[in-house]
């Protein structure tokens, strides 16, 4: 009896010891309480990034192995990144991905950093690698969606946004970006839906209201579009929303309202190109010389390689207005004969 009890006790102890060793060595079966970087994780969670970097110094890093070492590269890289020390962050991610080429977290972090710095070609490879190990990884899909969108591969971008939104459906900004891609793809009703979802999540987003205004206008719903622009203006979209309103009222044929809106733009931003354009367009049928006069200051800046589009367009319309006036005068001159 004694012998069997002793055996049982030895077995239990051995099992406990083995379990503990296994937990420490093989991280997926649970987080060991005695992990060396646990205190550093707490510093990171408290957003004490300089302390994280100080704690993860070279001598401490040499003592780390396995999941601890991989986690250390993640923590230190992100800390550098949040402090704006991009080169050092990239260095940590690169060493990390070389040591742990299947670490989806390191791959996506390095990809995101490269993407933010315009190195999309390399970023795309990293995100695609991440998707090989984790096909639904939202960060990789989001990164790819942005890269493909930036390069104008709009279909691919939309597909990646859709995959990302399976996990990030609570992110209003992702819904907005997705909607922008859909608008560029002319998939306007779907963009409208996506923007309504974005506004459900973030009702006070001026950007979402502006985009919804574009979607409504694209569907021919000018009343709806103008309503959204008003909402955006109330939420601080600034003179941009007023500009759009003046131009769109002109498109909708609401000429009196367009004139009032152009005045509002010019009050908020004197000399604004869009405001002047609307006023000139409204004057063009009855008073071409006055239309030309309004555009003259803007048109004066149309020369040179750096001239803005507005200035060049103003010059073209001014010249057309003057030509129209000359033609009108020629007709008047010819008619008595």
């Amino acid at each position: 009896m004694r012998t069997s009890a002793r055996r049982a006790a030895v077995l239990v102890c051995a099992a406990l010891a083995l379990g503990s060793a296994a937990r420490a060595a093989w991280w997926p079966f649970g987080e060991a309480d005695d992990r060396k970087i646990k205190p550093v994780e707490k510093l990171f969670a408290a957003r004490r990034y300089p302390d994280v970097i100080a704690a993860l110094n070279a001598s401490f890093m040499q003592t780390l192995r396995g999941a601890d070492l991989r986690g250390a590269y993640v923590l230190r890289g992100q800390s550098y990144d949040y402090l704006g020390r991009t080169d050092e962050a990239l260095g940590d991610y690169q060493v990390g991905t070389r040591l742990y080429p299947k670490s989806v977290e390191l791959l996506t972090l390095e990809g995101a950093l490269l993407h933010r710095n315009g190195l999309d070609e390399h970023a795309r490879e990293l995100f695609l690698s991440a998707l090989r190990y984790d096909p639904k990884n939202p960060r990789a899909h989001l990164g790819l969606a942005e890269i493909e969108g930036r390069l104008s591969f709009l279909d691919r971008s939309a597909t990646h946004y859709e995959a990302a939104l399976e996990s990030l459906s609570g992110r209003a900004d992702v819904w907005r970006d997705y909607a922008q891609v859909l608008l560029a793809l002319n998939e306007v009703p779907t963009a409208d839906l996506a923007l309504r979802k974005a506004l459900e999540l973030e009702p006070r987003s001026a950007d979402a209201h502006v985009l919804l205004a574009f979607a409504r206008r694209a569907q021919g719903d000018y009343d709806g579009a103008l309503l959204q622009l008003d909402e955006a203006a109330d939420l601080g979209a600034g003179v941009g929303a007023l500009r759009a309103k003046a131009l769109w009222l002109l498109e909708a044929g609401r000429l009196g309202d367009a004139a009032a809106a152009a005045d509002a733009v010019l009050r908020a931003a004197p000399g604004d190109a869009a405001g002047l354009w609307v006023k000139a367009r409204l004057l063009l049928p009855k008073n071409p010389p006055r239309a030309a006069e309004i555009l003259a200051p803007l048109a004066a800046d149309a020369d040179g390689d750096g001239a803005s589009f507005s200035a060049r367009a103003a010059r073209a319309l001014r010249d057309a207005a003057l030509a129209a006036q000359r033609a009108r005068e020629d007709r008047l001159y010819e008619s008595p004969q």
Partner: peptide
């Protein structure tokens, strides 16, 4: 969204 005068015009 780009609401500059150039973009909107």
């Amino acid at each position: 969204p780009d609401l500059s005068a150039d973009a909107l015009l």
